[in-house]
Simulated assay, not measured.
Amino acid sequence: MERQLPARLTGLAPIVLPLAVVALARAMTFTDWAVANTFWAALLFAWLVTDSLMLGTIAKAKDRRPGLHASLGALAIAAVVVLAGAAGPVRSTIHALPPLVAAAALTIALFLGWSALRFLAAVRQGQPIDAAAMEALPESMAPVVRFASAESRVMRLALFGWRRAQDIPAGAVGFSYHCYLLPMIWTLLVLQGIELAVMHFLLLQWNPTVAWIWFALGMAGGLWIMGLAQSFRIYPVLLTEEGLRVRSGIMIDVLVPYAAIGAQVSGFAREQVKDGGTFNQAVLSWPNVMLALDHPLRVKPLIGRAREVSAVAMRIDDSAAFNEALAARCDGAGK
């Protein structure tokens, strides 16, 4: 644990420190000194923002050698911050410096043009929109792209997923796990709706703006839960030709090769499920299937960090049929 903490801090430093420098540089533009010396404040602000973002990009890159696209992306972000982030008097001085404005605009245009070409090339190669967006943007923007992609996916399911059939590819067998789960989620949604209505009415008596903001956030949260519930129905656990595909809505999608499955565990205890090496797919319930793996498997859920696991626990509606079908697949794979 003592070794992990410094490693995490080291990993966060290239992100946190540049942001802190940019925030301090922006705060500097609001000082009396900056108002009295707008020209020097403008140059200092531009230098601090550009230098900190570039150093952060270099620190995050493999072997401290960022690619040209990543470097141009850092410069483009710095250009946007420089043009729009300073206090009024300093910002006016920046806009009154044609060489600085031209360099910033050219940097932004080059980055957007190059990114658009990379995006179109990835789409033509058949990559999904989110994967193409990751190709087009710097690696530092990958978490933002993943978050936006997940949010868009959930909202589409909430609004348009009601009649969508289960996602079971050809040659695969699906096993549902939503029958026990959906009644609890719909009950939660009803209770959330009642709470939202009551709180909205009470907040209207105090501040209508706050009331409508609260209402919008509550509706967004309700749609998110609704989309997540739809994903539990649409994406069942699969037995495919390649292996067991453990899914839990849009949150989990992990392929476990049949060769990695050591045994189907029966009568497992609480300690086994709660063990840090167990990957638990069950949501709001206790698992009824557990698999011991022959060797550790690295998994990366939508929420949470990647980790190595030695067992997989699941909740399956028809666990007997699942265990029988899995045993047949494992036997067919030579296990």
Rank of each mutant, 00 (worst) to 15 (best):
A269V: 05
S285W: 00
C179I: 15
A103Y: 04
W114A: 15
H95E: 10
A211Q: 06
Q4Y: 12
H95C: 01
S52K: 07
G73C: 11
P18W: 02
W47K: 05
D253K: 06
S285G: 11
H295G: 09
W47F: 15
P301Y: 10
Q4L: 14
G85T: 04
A74V: 11
Q272I: 02
L239N: 08
R307H: 14
M28G: 11
L24P: 03
L239E: 09
G73S: 13
A36E: 14
A211G: 08
H69I: 11
F232Q: 07
R91E: 05
G11L: 07
M199L: 08
A292Q: 15
R163S: 05
S115N: 06
V254W: 05
V256I: 12
A165T: 06
W224C: 00
I77G: 13
E308R: 15
K335D: 05
A41P: 09
F147Q: 13
R65Q: 15
A96Y: 05
L196R: 00
G221A: 12
A158T: 00
G56P: 09
V90I: 03
G174W: 03
V154S: 06
A260Q: 09
G277M: 06
R164C: 00
W212C: 01
P257E: 04
T57Y: 05
T50F: 13
A34S: 13
L9M: 13
E241D: 11
F111T: 03
H178V: 01
G262K: 14
L157T: 03
